[in-house]
Amino acid sequence: MKDKILGFTCAYAPVPIIEAAGFQAFRVLPQGECPDQAGQLLHDNLCPHVKRVLDRALDNDLPEVSAMVFVNSCDSMRRVADAWQVARPKDQVMVLDLPSTNTPSSIDFLATEYDRMARTLFTWNNQAFSREKVRARIKVWNDLSHTLGRLETKMGEAFYPGLAAAVQIVVNTAATDSVDAALAMAKAAVAKAWAPARGHAPVFLFGNLLFDPKVFDLFENWNMHVTRLDFCTGSRFVSTVDLSLADDPFVALARSYMTGPPCARTMDITRPGNLAQEIVERAGASNARAVMGFTLKFCDPYLARIPGIRQALQDAGIPFLMLEGDCTMGDIGQQQTRIEAFTEMLGV
């Protein structure tokens, strides 16, 4: 019998818990051709991510999703959680409260939220609650994370045409289909003899959502060597959970998620604005010579931090190109001239 499908929308949703409860996890990505209707319930000035996700719900452009987990990660996510319940009142919905800071009290609270989520999902699926099952699924995801990590290291070492898209396909498979299938693909990609090429400018990419593998092929056509995919739909989605941090897997999840590479909405209050410096450091670690940011229009958490990021990169002497859009291929296509000028300026 096929597992029931449970949808989610944010990288902070702990997929190992969803799988441990016997659901197939399905990330509702903002894609597809469904009509633009979300503005009726939300507002047109919300980010294209949540609007497109709601469009899919309103248009029933989804697999057989019977339940959803939303994360209270930003204002727009809060609102799409509200709107989803209007659009699809029969779905079981839970909203996970995600603190904005990584303080000990925040991590403790998040652990209780993950515990609550696990108990709820096991109950929804008529399964006996089991921490061991959660631990087992975390280990599978850690395996994927380590394997992807090897591919990401390779991305930074040299330009291998097609590797960035291959990494994204693995991540998308884990997000929307099966982590086991994704792991097999990742291992095959590690084993593959990739042929390096020259003449492309190494660029570190960061932002919120950019998940269409064809986009990265386009970037390569425009002389870019993508050294890292630091997106909510990229490397940040498949992060390692250090199970040695705590006996309780929920505490380990909470600590790992809150102290790993952050989305702009999560902050370290002891180092305000540290996202900018982290991007500088991660870009350097990936051997990039430049940084390109991509954020969705109306994404407050990122847009409010971009001037600080720009300043930090300028201070570090790292060229920076910032793009804002709706993450569709058409939108990216319009950026061709800017991206080509940027890579040409890097003079590789």
């Binding site: 800071t101 702009a264 305000p272 407050d300 931090r305």
Partner: peptide, 21 residues
């Protein structure tokens, strides 16, 4: 709102002042 929180973080950075959230 999360937008307001971003302003507070920027302010802490700009003024080099401690932040509590």
């Amino acid at each position: 709102c999360t937008a307001g929180l971003a302003v507070m973080e920027n302010m802490a950075k700009q003024y080099n002042r401690d932040l509590f959230v």
